[in-house]
């Protein structure tokens, strides 16, 4: 019951928020003209209706008189119907086939995929320090945090070695305009399935070749397996999964 209620809420709330917005856009783009029809359009519609009625009446009259000839009333030949059938068949064949064929070999089934995916903030460029009494006194009472922490962080560097060879080495800047966010990595590497030795190094202190965190592990990769190389922030270590 609660699930149903939350599901309904889930749909209802956005509809209530975006519905009026959507309606307003529609209104200004043209809905206004549909609901409050301008007199000129009303007149045009009236005239169109009148003309359609007049035309229909004339068609009936002329058909009765046998003088009005159009293809609309004439039947199509059996050959034409066959042609239609062929056209529908070809179209259906095209749609049916291309909706699921030909196959696309996206990934070699004998390979495994390594995904390097982690988001980790580098160390602060300038370490936090305690504010002096004087500094604290100069701040408004609600902003008197004892520590002053400059926001900017170092980029994070990662090196991933597979069986002793460098598979990836990269440096990522921290996110955010102030450079105070996490550095994110998302890379994919297809490798042959089998046993591999992984060596991962993560530097967060802004020193080239720094290795604040390391991981060295042997893993057996099955064909088509996805292996994640990541960083567990709660445990403070790199991991393979």
């Amino acid at each position: 019951m609660e699930n149903t209620f939350t599901s309904v809420l889930f749909y209802l709330v956005p509809i209530l928020i975006f519905g009026p917005l959507f309606f307003m856009i529609l209104w200004f783009v043209g809905l206004r003209d549909i609901i409050i029809v301008p007199p000129a359009v009303k007149e045009q519609r009236r005239r169109e209706r009148e003309e359609a009625g007049k035309l229909a009446a004339l068609k009936v009259r002329k058909r009765r008189g046998g003088r009005f000839t159009t293809r609309e009333g004439a039947g199509l030949s059996p050959l034409a119907w066959t042609g239609q059938g062929v056209a529908y068949l070809l179209f259906a064949g095209l749609v049916g086939y291309l909706s699921s064929a030909p196959d696309y070999l996206y990934f070699d089934p004998g390979d495994a995929l390594i995904k390097l995916s982690l988001s980790h903030p580098g160390k602060r460029k300038v370490a936090c320090r305690r504010r002096t009494r004087k500094e604290l006194a100069e701040l408004p009472p609600n902003m008197r945090a004892p520590l002053k922490c400059p926001r900017e962080r170092w980029p994070v560097e990662i090196e991933l070695r597979l069986d002793g060879k460098v598979l990836y080495r990269g440096l990522r800047k921290p996110a955010g305009l102030a450079g105070d966010g996490a550095s994110s990595f998302y890379e994919k590497f297809p490798v042959a399935a089998g046993v591999h030795r992984f060596a991962v190094r993560l530097g967060e202190s802004g020193q080239a070749g720094g290795s604040d965190y390391v991981l060295d592990e042997e893993v057996r990769l099955a064909p088509s397996q996805v292996l994640i190389v990541g960083f567990r922030s709660d445990a403070g270590r790199l991991f393979l999964k």
Binding site: G96, S99, A101, D103, Y106, F107, S224, V226
Partner: peptide, 24 residues
């Protein structure tokens, strides 16, 4: 005649190798 069918269920631990793409 040609009903639409699914692939195998998704499994994020495995990379799908061959796909029947909708080419449209």
């Amino acid at each position: 005649v040609w009903p639409a069918v699914s692939h195998e269920p998704a499994d994020l631990a495995v990379v799908p190798a061959s796909l029947n793409l909708d080419w449209f």
